[in-house]
Design a protein around this nucleic acid. Structure first.
Lengths: 214, 214
DNA sequence: AATGTAAGTGTAAACATGACACAAACACCG
DNA sequence: CGGTGTTTGTGTCATGTTTACACTTACATT
């Protein structure tokens, strides 16, 4: 961008973001996908996403798309840049992929106008995927699993307050690794990821302490 | 890119890559910068980079730019996406930043046509930087330090074969952390990052075993 | 009151990390 | 040719971190 003579300007590709929205489906991970109502890949399922607008950063575009699709304002984490020249048969589109973890109970899914449906799919049992979105998805799952080891990403899959058992279940879903209950609690508390609310969650059995991100 | 009606197409920004090329300057890190010969930021120093071409991926663009500037073919690692709408006053440019580690002894620097000079600068003592390239540089240095903890990135700063002392010096320059000689050797060998060549490097003092990435 | 189920807690072994000092090999010099 | 200077190369112990593991508590239900 700096040393190239400014007079040389190849045709500009479109820039879009694709968002891998993760949520808990019971005790496993779910991914938000959108059924395509038009060719190409009509009937296949694609990641939500959209084109970059003139006045926003790419990351803001990702957050806006997330908001438009789910009604949720949340952070997004960069997954990668997908730019194979043939990845979209219509025109060249360079896609920046982000991953977001949300609480699916607070989502309000809105199918966009060219989409037939928006729906959660289990991350381990996916329908036919459009474009190169299967690669994007795989990269996003790996990225999320990696981030979750160093940051309390799992808490974003839950409501504001939660029990440690719920947080552990979310963590296990994200990382794909089962962990010991006592070790998990020690790690979470020592890392200062959560603080107690002082409240107790009453259920069928012994009440559980309620926490929030700290 | 998928649910947005295809009829909506905002003006496409330009897409460019900027490359943070790192090399060893003695025992500290050096960064390749290019002095701008034109406005804006004439006289300031900028990262090498250039526009995406129609037939290449963004990563390939980064590798091509690296090759054009240094004559070296090497891997590049994604640093981030820099897309503030005002980051380039001429027109909107979304930049994908990569970092590359090279052996500066094998580079053949070529200043591009609109650049006054291409030169190595110590990463800790930089000249005035053009555009938002100071942020890009900072992010790249952090990324490289992080990657170097998990992968033999330091070896890319060296020729094909090297002594463990050289590798350690490169590692310390990359991560900014001094490490113990014996611990470093243990870590490198147990991780299988290097294998012996069987040769010895003769110098002023006791000869050193020569290794290569393995 | 008895039963079932999830919450909550401590400790010991294995492993990884960080700190530490000295002998060996060569070049150089007198 | 022996002494000096400088870099290579090596092992162990203390500390911190990670993993593995079992029982009691509290409540709801019957």
């Amino acid at each position: 961008m700096t040393q190239t003579p400014y007079t040389y300007a190849p045709p500009h590709p479109a820039i879009a973001t694709d968002i891998v929205v993760l949520a808990l489906e019971g005790s496993t991970l779910g991914v938000l996908l959108i059924e395509r109502g038009e060719e190409p890949h009509k009937g296949a399922w694609a990641l939500p996403g959209g084109f970059l607008r003139p006045d926003e950063t790419v990351e803001a575009c990702g957050m806006r798309e997330l908001q438009e699709e789910t009604g949720i304002r949340a952070e997004v984490d960069l997954v990668g840049v997908f730019s194979d020249p043939t990845r979209d048969p219509r025109e060249r589109v360079v896609s920046i992929a982000y991953v977001a973890c949300v609480d699916h109970r607070t989502t309000r899914l809105r199918a966009a106008s060219d989409a037939a449906a928006a729906q959660w799919w289990p991350a381990t049992d996916l329908p036919p995927i459009a474009f190169d979105h299967a690669s994007i998805l795989a990269a996003a799952l790996a990225k999320a699993a990696d981030l979750a080891r160093h940051r309390p990403l799992a808490a974003r899959l839950l409501p504001e307050s939660f029990t440690l058992a719920e947080l552990q279940e979310a963590q296990e879903a994200l990382t794909g690794r089962r962990v010991d209950k006592r070790n998990f609690r020690r790690e979470v508390l020592e890392a200062g990821w959560v603080r107690s609310t002082g409240e107790m969650r009453r259920g069928q059995h012994r009440p559980a302490e309620v926490w929030r991100v700290g």
